[in-house]
Every structure is written in structure tokens, then in C-alpha cells.
Design a protein around this nucleic acid. Structure first.
Lengths: 135, 135
DNA sequence: TATTGTTATACTCTATAACTATA
DNA sequence: TATAGTTATAGAGTATAACAATA
């Protein structure tokens, strides 16, 4: 049993390593860092504030400022001041940003290459197990 | 079914995010970056060459040089020239490095906090599914 | 006075290119 | 000449502290 547990820990570690590597490669295909692609992926239709993004990405607001500035310089996002509270800036994705984001999604082959090895019943099994782990 | 697949993709993404965050926090408890802790974790008893480490960590050799230099400056690893081929330097972990590595392992609460939510049969199930995904 | 975001700064991660030492 | 590793350099990620604008 200890063996199984240690084996499982290692497997999860391997999974995370493979996932991160695949995500980095996908981002690189459009000259984005993983952090930039991740931010792009977190943007909602109505636009997120800088603070909300920092909270979701678990990083400092000053870091978000830099990431958004680089994405904005490439025309992938825009800062829109909130009319109701002009301290707040909402970050929205531009059409060019949507195209780049879609390209990252298409290039990200982990779901199809790896999770695609499971049958449909196995996917349900895995989903149930992960639900418990992530609850 | 599409719903389930998309849900599964998101769950795996959430798992990776939670894992990475937990690992970073664990490393931070001993003032290591995640990259430094990861290198420390990859060291074997006989010592890895710089090139082997670069291969395992999927990064450039010059990056390994810097990481090892910082760990060496803290007395956590040592560079030992290979007697058979003096171009090669084997990186070995010091007793202080072992203590720090163990501290990271103890502080890394993901396996106990998250995987610990599964029963033993569920762990076997998950291990079997991950074996297929990682094969 | 409190909050949102930015700026200045510093350190780390990471890669590329040029270099040294050894084979 | 080829290989292992380092150095120099540069761009990006990240946090802290100080700051500006707004509430």
C-alpha cells in the first residue's frame, strides 16, 4: 500500500510535469510565455480587473501590470477604465488576442494526446476521482 | 460526452494549478524557488552530471549552471569532477541539502491533503488511469 | 483614509552565443 | 574536432515598497 501511494504521488508529479511542458510548448508556438497565455485564458467576456486577475493567478498585482502591458503592446488585450469606478481598469481581449488564444488552444495537445488515451467510461471514472481530489 | 470531456480537461488544469501552487509554497518555506527545489529532488545518490540534469529538467545547460551555482553558494549541493572524464562535473547533495530537501517534502502537503481524500481502492483506480495517460 | 493600479527596483528563471577545458 | 560546462548577456517572471489617482 505504501508502494501504491508513493507510486501514485510520482505519477501525479509526472502528469503535472508533462502538462506544464506541453502548455509551455503550445504558448511558444505564438511567442507567448506560459504566464502570458495563462492570463489570456483567464480573461472573461466582460473584462477582468487587474486585481481579479492577480487573485485568480495567485500573484501580485504589480506582476499583472507587467504581463498585461506586454500583451497590450502586442495588441492582444486592451485596458478599459471602469465607468463606475475609474480606479478600476478592465482588461478585455481583442480580436487579435482571441485568434492567438485559439491558436494556443489548438496547439495544446495534452488533452487529445494524453487524456485521449482513455475510453469514455475511463474518463468518467477519472472525472469522479478528480472531483473528490479537488473538492 | 463533450461536456464530460471539457469538464475533465478543466479538472486536470485545476489539478496542475493546485499542484504547482502547493509545490511553490513548500519550496518557499525554506527560501527555495520551485526550480531549485525541483533540481534538488532530481539529484541521485551517485551524483548527476550537469547535462543529465538539463535533460531531465528539460532546460538549457547554462540554466543548470546557474541553478547549481545558487544551491552551491548555500551549501546544499557540491560539484565533484568525474575522475574518469574531467570535463564532467557530478552534482551531489550535501547533508545540509538533504535536510532542506526533506523539509520541502514535509511541507509539500498536496499528496496528503488532496490525494489523501481518496480511499485505497480509489488510489488504485487513479493509478491505473494515470498509467494509461502517461504510458 | 482606504483602495486600485503603476512605477522603481531587485532577484530569479531561462535561453543564445561565445568561450574554456578536456577528450 | 567534438563534448561538457561556464560566462556574458538579454528578456521575462515575480515580489516589495513607494507612489498616483480615485473613492
Amino acid at each position: 500500500m505504501t508502494e501504491v501511494t508513493e507510486g501514485l504521488d510520482q505519477q501525479v508529479s509526472d502528469l503535472v510535469f508533462a502538462y506544464d511542458a506541453a502548455y509551455g510548448r503550445a504558448a511558444q508556438t505564438v511567442s507567448l510565455s506560459a504566464a502570458q497565455a495563462c492570463l489570456l485564458e483567464h480573461l472573461t467576456a466582460d473584462g477582468c480587473s487587474m486585481g481579479e486577475l492577480a487573485g485568480e493567478l495567485l500573484c501580485d498585482a504589480s506582476n499583472v501590470t507587467q504581463l498585461v502591458s506586454r500583451l497590450e503592446a502586442r495588441g492582444l488585450v486592451a485596458r478599459v477604465p471602469d465607468p463606475a469606478d475609474r480606479r478600476i481598469k478592465r482588461v478585455s481581449i481583442t480580436p487579435a488576442g482571441q485568434r492567438v488564444r485559439d491558436a494556443v488552444r489548438r496547439a495544446f495537445d495534452f488533452p487529445s494526446d494524453r487524456l485521449g488515451r482513455l475510453t469514455q467510461p475511463e474518463r468518467h471514472q477519472l472525472a469522479a476521482l478528480l472531483a473528490k481530489v479537488l473538492a
